[in-house]
Design a protein around this nucleic acid. Structure first.
Length: 432
RNA sequence: UUGGCCGUAGCUCAGUUGGUUAGAGCGCCGGGUUGUGGUCCCGGAGGUCGGGGGUUCAAAUCCCCUCGGUCAACCCA
Protein backbone atom coordinates (compact mmCIF):
# COMPACT_ATOMS: atom_id res chain seq x y z
CA UNK A 1 0.00 0.00 0.00
CA UNK A 2 1.53 3.27 -1.05
CA UNK A 3 1.85 6.04 1.53
CA UNK A 4 -1.05 8.42 2.03
CA UNK A 5 -1.31 11.83 3.65
CA UNK A 6 -1.82 11.26 7.39
CA UNK A 7 -5.38 10.93 8.57
CA UNK A 8 -7.18 14.21 8.75
CA UNK A 9 -4.63 15.98 6.55
CA UNK A 10 -4.81 16.62 2.84
CA UNK A 11 -2.96 17.97 -0.14
CA UNK A 12 -4.51 21.09 -1.56
CA UNK A 13 -3.72 21.07 -5.26
CA UNK A 14 -3.68 23.73 -7.89
CA UNK A 15 -7.02 25.38 -8.44
CA UNK A 16 -8.08 24.99 -4.82
CA UNK A 17 -4.74 26.11 -3.43
CA UNK A 18 -5.02 29.33 -5.42
CA UNK A 19 -8.41 29.82 -3.87
CA UNK A 20 -7.04 29.39 -0.37
CA UNK A 21 -4.29 31.85 -1.16
CA UNK A 22 -6.80 34.34 -2.52
CA UNK A 23 -8.82 34.00 0.65
CA UNK A 24 -5.78 34.77 2.77
CA UNK A 25 -4.90 37.73 0.57
CA UNK A 26 -8.41 39.04 0.88
CA UNK A 27 -8.22 38.74 4.64
CA UNK A 28 -4.83 40.42 4.73
CA UNK A 29 -6.22 43.34 2.77
CA UNK A 30 -9.25 43.67 5.05
CA UNK A 31 -7.16 43.45 8.23
CA UNK A 32 -4.53 45.88 7.05
CA UNK A 33 -7.17 48.40 6.03
CA UNK A 34 -8.04 48.44 9.71
CA UNK A 35 -4.44 48.78 10.83
CA UNK A 36 -3.67 45.21 11.82
CA UNK A 37 -0.14 43.97 11.11
CA UNK A 38 0.71 40.38 10.33
CA UNK A 39 2.39 38.13 12.87
CA UNK A 40 4.10 34.98 11.70
CA UNK A 41 4.58 32.89 14.80
CA UNK A 42 6.07 29.41 15.23
CA UNK A 43 4.10 26.34 14.25
CA UNK A 44 4.93 24.87 17.67
CA UNK A 45 5.35 26.30 21.14
CA UNK A 46 6.42 25.23 24.58
CA UNK A 47 3.50 23.19 25.72
CA UNK A 48 2.83 25.45 28.71
CA UNK A 49 1.73 28.22 26.37
CA UNK A 50 -1.37 26.24 25.60
CA UNK A 51 -1.74 24.45 28.91
CA UNK A 52 -1.93 27.65 30.91
CA UNK A 53 -4.74 28.76 28.69
CA UNK A 54 -7.19 26.12 29.72
CA UNK A 55 -6.58 22.73 31.20
CA UNK A 56 -10.31 22.08 31.10
CA UNK A 57 -10.70 22.53 27.37
CA UNK A 58 -10.60 19.49 25.14
CA UNK A 59 -8.32 21.28 22.76
CA UNK A 60 -5.47 21.32 25.23
CA UNK A 61 -6.36 18.36 27.40
CA UNK A 62 -6.69 15.73 24.71
CA UNK A 63 -6.34 17.13 21.23
CA UNK A 64 -2.80 18.41 21.22
CA UNK A 65 -0.03 16.97 19.12
CA UNK A 66 2.82 17.01 21.58
CA UNK A 67 6.36 15.80 21.38
CA UNK A 68 9.81 16.13 22.85
CA UNK A 69 12.56 17.45 20.65
CA UNK A 70 16.11 16.02 20.74
CA UNK A 71 16.92 18.60 23.44
CA UNK A 72 14.14 17.11 25.57
CA UNK A 73 11.96 20.21 25.32
CA UNK A 74 8.29 19.49 25.72
CA UNK A 75 6.56 21.09 22.72
CA UNK A 76 3.17 21.09 21.06
CA UNK A 77 1.98 21.87 17.55
CA UNK A 78 -0.25 24.89 17.95
CA UNK A 79 -3.92 23.91 18.36
CA UNK A 80 -4.97 27.55 18.12
CA UNK A 81 -3.26 30.88 17.70
CA UNK A 82 -4.64 33.28 20.28
CA UNK A 83 -2.37 31.77 22.92
CA UNK A 84 0.63 32.04 20.60
CA UNK A 85 -0.15 35.67 19.94
CA UNK A 86 -0.56 36.37 23.64
CA UNK A 87 2.82 34.74 24.24
CA UNK A 88 4.35 36.87 21.49
CA UNK A 89 2.79 39.93 23.07
CA UNK A 90 4.29 39.14 26.45
CA UNK A 91 7.65 38.45 24.89
CA UNK A 92 7.88 41.62 22.78
CA UNK A 93 5.68 44.10 24.65
CA UNK A 94 4.71 46.14 21.61
CA UNK A 95 3.06 49.55 22.10
CA UNK A 96 -0.66 49.48 22.86
CA UNK A 97 -3.04 48.90 21.35
CA UNK A 98 -1.39 46.05 19.51
CA UNK A 99 -3.39 44.94 16.50
CA UNK A 100 -2.24 41.77 14.85
CA UNK A 101 -3.57 39.39 12.22
CA UNK A 102 -2.39 35.92 11.36
CA UNK A 103 -2.99 33.03 9.06
CA UNK A 104 -1.84 29.46 8.83
CA UNK A 105 -2.30 25.84 9.77
CA UNK A 106 -3.20 24.57 13.19
CA UNK A 107 -3.31 21.07 14.53
CA UNK A 108 -5.78 19.15 16.62
CA UNK A 109 -5.97 15.43 17.19
CA UNK A 110 -9.61 14.85 16.38
CA UNK A 111 -11.62 12.40 14.37
CA UNK A 112 -11.88 13.99 10.96
CA UNK A 113 -15.10 14.58 9.05
CA UNK A 114 -16.38 17.06 6.52
CA UNK A 115 -15.15 20.49 7.53
CA UNK A 116 -12.98 19.11 10.29
CA UNK A 117 -9.35 18.23 9.81
CA UNK A 118 -6.36 17.45 11.97
CA UNK A 119 -4.44 20.10 10.12
CA UNK A 120 -6.71 23.00 9.32
CA UNK A 121 -6.23 26.61 8.37
CA UNK A 122 -7.42 29.74 10.02
CA UNK A 123 -7.22 33.44 9.53
CA UNK A 124 -7.66 35.62 12.56
CA UNK A 125 -7.01 38.92 14.27
CA UNK A 126 -6.37 40.07 17.83
CA UNK A 127 -6.46 43.45 19.49
CA UNK A 128 -4.46 43.67 22.71
CA UNK A 129 -4.51 46.47 25.24
CA UNK A 130 -7.99 47.91 25.17
CA UNK A 131 -11.15 47.07 27.04
CA UNK A 132 -13.17 49.60 25.08
CA UNK A 133 -16.36 47.98 23.75
CA UNK A 134 -15.61 49.79 20.49
CA UNK A 135 -12.62 47.48 20.17
CA UNK A 136 -14.99 44.50 20.34
CA UNK A 137 -17.13 46.13 17.70
CA UNK A 138 -14.15 46.78 15.43
CA UNK A 139 -12.98 43.19 15.68
CA UNK A 140 -16.42 41.76 14.99
CA UNK A 141 -16.91 44.20 12.13
CA UNK A 142 -13.63 43.07 10.58
CA UNK A 143 -14.71 39.43 10.64
CA UNK A 144 -18.12 40.35 9.27
CA UNK A 145 -16.82 42.59 6.53
CA UNK A 146 -14.34 39.98 5.39
CA UNK A 147 -17.00 37.25 5.19
CA UNK A 148 -19.27 39.51 3.22
CA UNK A 149 -16.43 40.25 0.84
CA UNK A 150 -16.07 36.56 0.17
CA UNK A 151 -19.65 36.70 -0.99
CA UNK A 152 -21.16 34.87 1.96
CA UNK A 153 -24.75 35.87 2.50
CA UNK A 154 -26.27 33.13 4.62
CA UNK A 155 -24.27 34.08 7.64
CA UNK A 156 -25.46 34.30 11.21
CA UNK A 157 -23.67 36.33 13.86
CA UNK A 158 -24.42 35.16 17.38
CA UNK A 159 -23.23 37.16 20.38
CA UNK A 160 -23.23 36.73 24.11
CA UNK A 161 -21.48 38.02 27.19
CA UNK A 162 -19.99 35.74 29.80
CA UNK A 163 -19.51 38.58 32.26
CA UNK A 164 -16.36 39.49 34.12
CA UNK A 165 -14.11 36.89 35.64
CA UNK A 166 -16.01 36.92 38.91
CA UNK A 167 -19.40 37.00 37.16
CA UNK A 168 -18.38 34.01 35.17
CA UNK A 169 -17.31 32.15 38.29
CA UNK A 170 -20.47 32.84 40.27
CA UNK A 171 -22.56 31.95 37.28
CA UNK A 172 -20.61 28.79 36.84
CA UNK A 173 -21.21 27.89 40.48
CA UNK A 174 -24.91 28.64 40.22
CA UNK A 175 -25.15 26.60 37.06
CA UNK A 176 -23.32 23.75 38.71
CA UNK A 177 -25.69 23.82 41.69
CA UNK A 178 -28.67 23.77 39.41
CA UNK A 179 -27.42 20.87 37.32
CA UNK A 180 -26.30 18.94 40.42
CA UNK A 181 -29.85 19.06 41.73
CA UNK A 182 -31.17 17.69 38.48
CA UNK A 183 -28.24 15.44 37.63
CA UNK A 184 -30.54 12.46 37.48
CA UNK A 185 -32.28 13.87 34.46
CA UNK A 186 -29.07 14.51 32.54
CA UNK A 187 -27.63 12.10 30.03
CA UNK A 188 -24.66 10.05 31.16
CA UNK A 189 -22.17 12.01 29.07
CA UNK A 190 -23.94 15.14 30.25
CA UNK A 191 -23.13 14.28 33.85
CA UNK A 192 -19.51 13.83 32.87
CA UNK A 193 -19.54 17.24 31.22
CA UNK A 194 -21.05 18.71 34.35
CA UNK A 195 -18.15 17.38 36.38
CA UNK A 196 -15.54 18.82 34.05
CA UNK A 197 -17.09 22.11 33.04
CA UNK A 198 -20.73 22.98 33.74
CA UNK A 199 -20.66 25.85 31.24
CA UNK A 200 -20.15 23.39 28.44
CA UNK A 201 -23.49 21.85 29.21
CA UNK A 202 -25.15 24.96 27.88
CA UNK A 203 -24.61 24.03 24.28
CA UNK A 204 -25.22 20.31 24.60
CA UNK A 205 -27.27 18.90 21.75
CA UNK A 206 -28.58 15.93 23.66
CA UNK A 207 -32.35 16.10 24.14
CA UNK A 208 -32.29 15.08 27.84
CA UNK A 209 -29.79 17.81 28.62
CA UNK A 210 -31.70 20.36 26.65
CA UNK A 211 -34.81 19.64 28.66
CA UNK A 212 -32.96 20.32 31.89
CA UNK A 213 -31.43 23.41 30.35
CA UNK A 214 -34.78 25.07 29.96
CA UNK A 215 -34.93 25.99 33.64
CA UNK A 216 -31.24 26.77 34.09
CA UNK A 217 -30.07 30.11 35.48
CA UNK A 218 -29.33 32.70 32.81
CA UNK A 219 -26.02 34.55 32.60
CA UNK A 220 -27.74 37.92 32.37
CA UNK A 221 -28.64 37.78 36.05
CA UNK A 222 -24.99 37.45 37.00
CA UNK A 223 -23.47 40.32 35.05
CA UNK A 224 -21.93 43.07 37.13
CA UNK A 225 -22.74 46.61 36.20
CA UNK A 226 -19.70 47.20 34.05
CA UNK A 227 -20.16 43.95 32.16
CA UNK A 228 -23.76 44.83 31.47
CA UNK A 229 -22.71 48.24 30.25
CA UNK A 230 -19.95 46.81 28.10
CA UNK A 231 -22.21 44.31 26.41
CA UNK A 232 -24.82 47.00 25.83
CA UNK A 233 -22.23 49.16 24.12
CA UNK A 234 -21.08 46.29 21.94
CA UNK A 235 -24.62 45.59 20.83
CA UNK A 236 -25.46 49.18 20.06
CA UNK A 237 -22.16 49.49 18.22
CA UNK A 238 -23.08 46.59 15.98
CA UNK A 239 -26.52 48.04 15.44
CA UNK A 240 -25.01 51.40 14.48
CA UNK A 241 -22.94 49.63 11.83
CA UNK A 242 -25.96 47.79 10.53
CA UNK A 243 -24.46 44.40 11.30
CA UNK A 244 -27.27 41.98 12.06
CA UNK A 245 -26.80 39.67 15.04
CA UNK A 246 -28.74 37.52 17.43
CA UNK A 247 -28.22 37.14 21.13
CA UNK A 248 -27.80 33.61 22.43
CA UNK A 249 -27.42 33.43 26.21
CA UNK A 250 -26.18 29.87 25.89
CA UNK A 251 -23.24 30.63 23.63
CA UNK A 252 -20.10 29.84 25.64
CA UNK A 253 -17.48 28.80 23.07
CA UNK A 254 -14.89 26.15 23.67
CA UNK A 255 -11.94 28.07 25.04
CA UNK A 256 -11.96 28.76 28.76
CA UNK A 257 -10.32 32.13 28.55
CA UNK A 258 -13.25 34.11 27.21
CA UNK A 259 -14.58 36.93 29.38
CA UNK A 260 -17.42 39.27 28.57
CA UNK A 261 -17.95 39.23 24.81
CA UNK A 262 -18.16 35.92 22.99
CA UNK A 263 -19.36 35.57 19.43
CA UNK A 264 -19.68 33.04 16.68
CA UNK A 265 -20.24 33.15 12.94
CA UNK A 266 -22.27 30.29 11.53
CA UNK A 267 -23.22 29.59 7.96
CA UNK A 268 -26.75 28.47 7.18
CA UNK A 269 -25.50 27.29 3.81
CA UNK A 270 -23.50 24.51 5.42
CA UNK A 271 -25.48 21.42 6.22
CA UNK A 272 -24.19 19.11 8.86
CA UNK A 273 -22.99 19.66 12.37
CA UNK A 274 -20.00 21.81 11.52
CA UNK A 275 -21.75 25.02 10.63
CA UNK A 276 -19.55 27.41 12.61
CA UNK A 277 -17.07 29.15 10.37
CA UNK A 278 -15.46 31.07 13.15
CA UNK A 279 -15.71 32.67 16.50
CA UNK A 280 -13.99 34.79 19.03
CA UNK A 281 -14.38 37.03 21.97
CA UNK A 282 -12.69 38.94 24.72
CA UNK A 283 -9.95 37.32 26.76
CA UNK A 284 -9.01 39.84 29.43
CA UNK A 285 -6.71 37.94 31.76
CA UNK A 286 -5.08 35.69 29.19
CA UNK A 287 -1.97 37.83 28.91
CA UNK A 288 -1.59 37.88 32.68
CA UNK A 289 -1.97 34.11 32.78
CA UNK A 290 1.03 33.90 30.49
CA UNK A 291 3.12 36.00 32.81
CA UNK A 292 2.53 39.40 31.27
CA UNK A 293 0.98 42.52 32.71
CA UNK A 294 -2.76 42.64 33.15
CA UNK A 295 -3.79 43.38 29.56
CA UNK A 296 -7.23 43.06 28.00
CA UNK A 297 -7.67 41.64 24.52
CA UNK A 298 -10.29 40.73 21.99
CA UNK A 299 -10.08 38.78 18.76
CA UNK A 300 -11.38 36.03 16.55
CA UNK A 301 -10.41 33.22 14.23
CA UNK A 302 -12.15 32.00 11.11
CA UNK A 303 -11.65 28.55 9.62
CA UNK A 304 -10.38 28.95 6.09
CA UNK A 305 -11.39 25.44 5.09
CA UNK A 306 -14.92 25.93 6.35
CA UNK A 307 -15.19 29.38 4.82
CA UNK A 308 -14.36 27.84 1.46
CA UNK A 309 -16.93 25.10 2.03
CA UNK A 310 -19.49 27.77 2.78
CA UNK A 311 -18.44 29.60 -0.38
CA UNK A 312 -18.94 26.37 -2.32
CA UNK A 313 -22.40 25.99 -0.83
CA UNK A 314 -23.30 29.52 -1.84
CA UNK A 315 -21.57 29.29 -5.20
CA UNK A 316 -19.36 32.25 -4.48
CA UNK A 317 -15.62 33.04 -4.41
CA UNK A 318 -14.55 30.84 -7.33
CA UNK A 319 -10.93 29.87 -7.87
CA UNK A 320 -9.05 32.58 -9.71
CA UNK A 321 -8.48 31.73 -13.38
CA UNK A 322 -5.05 30.39 -14.08
CA UNK A 323 -5.22 30.35 -17.86
CA UNK A 324 -2.09 31.10 -19.83
CA UNK A 325 -1.97 34.04 -22.22
CA UNK A 326 -0.01 32.22 -24.88
CA UNK A 327 0.77 28.60 -25.66
CA UNK A 328 3.84 27.99 -27.75
CA UNK A 329 3.50 25.21 -30.34
CA UNK A 330 6.86 24.21 -31.72
CA UNK A 331 7.24 21.50 -34.37
CA UNK A 332 10.94 22.06 -34.90
CA UNK A 333 12.02 20.06 -31.88
CA UNK A 334 11.19 22.14 -28.85
CA UNK A 335 14.29 24.27 -28.38
CA UNK A 336 12.66 27.22 -30.14
CA UNK A 337 9.69 26.97 -27.79
CA UNK A 338 12.01 27.24 -24.83
CA UNK A 339 13.56 30.44 -26.18
CA UNK A 340 10.24 32.08 -27.01
CA UNK A 341 8.49 30.98 -23.83
CA UNK A 342 11.30 32.27 -21.64
CA UNK A 343 11.36 35.55 -23.53
CA UNK A 344 7.61 35.99 -23.10
CA UNK A 345 7.73 35.09 -19.42
CA UNK A 346 10.51 37.59 -18.98
CA UNK A 347 8.13 40.17 -20.38
CA UNK A 348 5.48 39.20 -17.85
CA UNK A 349 3.39 37.15 -20.27
CA UNK A 350 1.99 33.84 -19.06
CA UNK A 351 3.32 31.33 -21.54
CA UNK A 352 2.81 27.57 -21.73
CA UNK A 353 4.39 24.99 -23.99
CA UNK A 354 4.51 21.26 -24.60
CA UNK A 355 7.34 18.82 -24.13
CA UNK A 356 8.45 15.52 -25.63
CA UNK A 357 8.27 16.55 -29.31
CA UNK A 358 4.58 15.82 -29.56
CA UNK A 359 2.70 16.08 -32.83
CA UNK A 360 1.32 19.40 -33.91
CA UNK A 361 -2.19 18.16 -33.36
CA UNK A 362 -1.34 17.10 -29.84
CA UNK A 363 0.28 20.45 -29.13
CA UNK A 364 -2.72 22.32 -30.48
CA UNK A 365 -4.93 20.26 -28.21
CA UNK A 366 -2.74 21.15 -25.27
CA UNK A 367 -2.90 24.79 -26.30
CA UNK A 368 -6.67 24.62 -26.38
CA UNK A 369 -6.92 22.98 -23.00
CA UNK A 370 -4.53 25.44 -21.42
CA UNK A 371 -7.13 28.11 -21.99
CA UNK A 372 -4.53 30.30 -23.66
CA UNK A 373 -5.84 33.14 -25.74
CA UNK A 374 -3.24 32.67 -28.43
CA UNK A 375 -1.31 29.81 -29.88
CA UNK A 376 2.09 30.82 -31.08
CA UNK A 377 3.19 28.50 -33.87
CA UNK A 378 6.76 27.81 -34.80
CA UNK A 379 7.36 25.41 -37.68
CA UNK A 380 10.09 25.17 -40.29
CA UNK A 381 8.38 27.86 -42.41
CA UNK A 382 8.25 30.38 -39.63
CA UNK A 383 11.74 29.59 -38.52
CA UNK A 384 13.16 30.14 -42.00
CA UNK A 385 11.28 33.42 -42.36
CA UNK A 386 12.29 34.71 -38.93
CA UNK A 387 8.64 34.85 -37.95
CA UNK A 388 6.02 33.11 -35.85
CA UNK A 389 2.34 32.50 -36.50
CA UNK A 390 0.06 34.05 -33.92
CA UNK A 391 -3.30 32.33 -33.83
CA UNK A 392 -6.14 33.67 -31.76
CA UNK A 393 -7.96 30.73 -30.30
CA UNK A 394 -11.67 30.54 -30.68
CA UNK A 395 -13.60 31.47 -27.59
CA UNK A 396 -11.46 34.52 -27.01
CA UNK A 397 -11.88 38.13 -27.98
CA UNK A 398 -13.18 39.16 -31.36
CA UNK A 399 -12.75 35.68 -32.74
CA UNK A 400 -15.28 34.24 -30.33
CA UNK A 401 -17.90 33.50 -32.90
CA UNK A 402 -15.92 33.65 -36.11
CA UNK A 403 -13.16 31.37 -37.26
CA UNK A 404 -9.85 31.66 -35.55
CA UNK A 405 -7.62 34.26 -37.05
CA UNK A 406 -3.98 33.66 -37.64
CA UNK A 407 -1.25 35.93 -38.82
CA UNK A 408 2.51 36.13 -39.09
CA UNK A 409 4.50 38.26 -36.67
CA UNK A 410 8.21 39.03 -36.81
CA UNK A 411 10.03 36.79 -34.36
CA UNK A 412 11.79 39.77 -32.80
CA UNK A 413 8.55 41.61 -32.18
CA UNK A 414 6.50 38.82 -30.63
CA UNK A 415 6.78 39.88 -27.00
CA UNK A 416 6.03 43.50 -27.78
CA UNK A 417 3.08 42.60 -29.97
CA UNK A 418 1.50 40.32 -27.38
CA UNK A 419 2.04 42.89 -24.67
CA UNK A 420 0.28 45.43 -26.86
CA UNK A 421 -2.65 43.08 -27.40
CA UNK A 422 -2.90 42.30 -23.68
CA UNK A 423 -2.92 45.98 -22.77
CA UNK A 424 -5.60 46.65 -25.35
CA UNK A 425 -7.69 43.76 -24.07
CA UNK A 426 -7.32 44.93 -20.48
CA UNK A 427 -8.39 48.44 -21.38
CA UNK A 428 -11.37 47.08 -23.23
CA UNK A 429 -12.29 44.86 -20.32
CA UNK A 430 -12.01 47.54 -17.65
CA UNK A 431 -13.82 50.27 -19.59
CA UNK A 432 -16.70 48.68 -21.44
C1' U B 1 -13.22 8.29 22.42
C1' U B 2 -18.38 5.92 20.80
C1' G B 3 -21.87 4.33 16.98
C1' G B 4 -24.13 4.03 11.62
C1' C B 5 -22.95 3.93 6.32
C1' C B 6 -19.12 3.37 2.67
C1' G B 7 -14.05 1.92 0.01
C1' U B 8 -14.04 -1.49 -7.78
C1' A B 9 -9.31 2.19 -13.43
C1' G B 10 -6.89 9.42 -12.63
C1' C B 11 -12.58 10.89 -11.72
C1' U B 12 -18.03 9.29 -11.31
C1' C B 13 -19.90 4.65 -10.89
C1' A B 14 -22.00 -0.82 -12.96
C1' G B 15 -20.76 -5.59 -11.39
C1' U B 16 -27.26 -10.38 -10.65
C1' U B 17 -28.33 -15.68 -5.08
C1' G B 18 -19.70 -16.25 -4.49
C1' G B 19 -18.44 -19.28 -10.65
C1' U B 20 -14.14 -18.85 -16.04
C1' U B 21 -9.44 -13.49 -19.25
C1' A B 22 -13.50 -7.35 -13.83
C1' G B 23 -16.95 -3.38 -17.21
C1' A B 24 -19.06 1.74 -18.72
C1' G B 25 -18.88 7.06 -19.11
C1' C B 26 -15.53 11.05 -18.58
C1' G B 27 -10.36 12.03 -18.63
C1' C B 28 -5.52 10.61 -20.72
C1' C B 29 -2.40 8.86 -25.13
C1' G B 30 -2.35 7.79 -30.49
C1' G B 31 -4.68 7.82 -35.37
C1' G B 32 -8.50 9.77 -39.24
C1' U B 33 -2.31 11.06 -45.75
C1' U B 34 0.09 16.78 -47.54
C1' G B 35 2.17 21.59 -40.44
C1' U B 36 -3.51 23.64 -36.90
C1' G B 37 -7.26 22.79 -31.25
C1' G B 38 -12.51 22.80 -29.65
C1' U B 39 -17.37 18.55 -32.62
C1' C B 40 -17.29 13.52 -34.72
C1' C B 41 -15.18 8.48 -35.82
C1' C B 42 -11.46 4.55 -34.75
C1' G B 43 -7.79 2.47 -31.62
C1' G B 44 -4.81 2.18 -27.04
C1' A B 45 -2.79 2.48 -22.14
C1' G B 46 -4.48 2.12 -17.18
C1' G B 47 -7.16 -1.89 -11.82
C1' U B 48 -2.66 -7.01 -6.57
C1' C B 49 -11.50 -4.87 -6.75
C1' G B 50 -8.12 0.08 0.17
C1' G B 51 -4.64 -3.54 2.93
C1' G B 52 -4.02 -8.29 5.72
C1' G B 53 -5.98 -12.87 7.31
C1' G B 54 -9.90 -16.63 7.05
C1' U B 55 -14.14 -19.80 4.91
C1' U B 56 -14.63 -22.35 -0.02
C1' C B 57 -13.16 -26.55 -5.48
C1' A B 58 -13.91 -21.14 -6.48
C1' A B 59 -14.44 -14.38 -3.33
C1' A B 60 -14.85 -7.71 -5.85
C1' U B 61 -19.07 -10.62 -3.83
C1' C B 62 -19.27 -14.23 2.89
C1' C B 63 -16.50 -13.64 8.05
C1' C B 64 -12.61 -11.18 11.18
C1' C B 65 -8.89 -7.45 11.74
C1' U B 66 -6.83 -3.04 9.92
C1' C B 67 -6.34 1.64 7.14
C1' G B 68 -9.08 5.51 4.97
C1' G B 69 -13.61 8.36 3.83
C1' U B 70 -18.39 9.96 5.45
C1' C B 71 -22.45 10.99 8.96
C1' A B 72 -23.83 11.62 14.06
C1' A B 73 -22.60 12.01 19.50
C1' C B 74 -18.59 14.70 21.79
C1' C B 75 -15.99 18.98 20.58
C1' C B 76 -14.82 22.77 17.49
C1' A B 77 -12.69 26.15 12.71
Amino acid sequence: MSPQAPRGTRDILAPESARLRALVESFAAAAELAGYGQVVSPMFEQIEVFQRVGEATDIVSKEMYQFRDPGDRHLALRPELTASLARAFVQHRPPLPWKAWYEGPQFRYEKPQAGRFRQFHQVGAELFGSDDPQADVEVIALAWRFCRRLGLGELRLVVNSLGDRSDRETYRAALSDYFQRRAGELSAPGRETLRRNPLRLLDSRRPEDRAVLAGAPVIDDYWCESATEHFGAVRSGLEALGIPFERDPRLVRGLDYYRRTAFELASDALDGAQDAVGGGGRYDGLVADLGGPETPGVGFALGSDRLLLACDAEGTFPAPAAAADVFVVDTTGGAAATLVAEELRGAGIRAGRAFDGRSMKAQMKAADRSGARWALLIGPDEQDAGEVSLREMRGHGAAASAESVQRRVRRAEVAAEITRLLVAAAAEGSAP
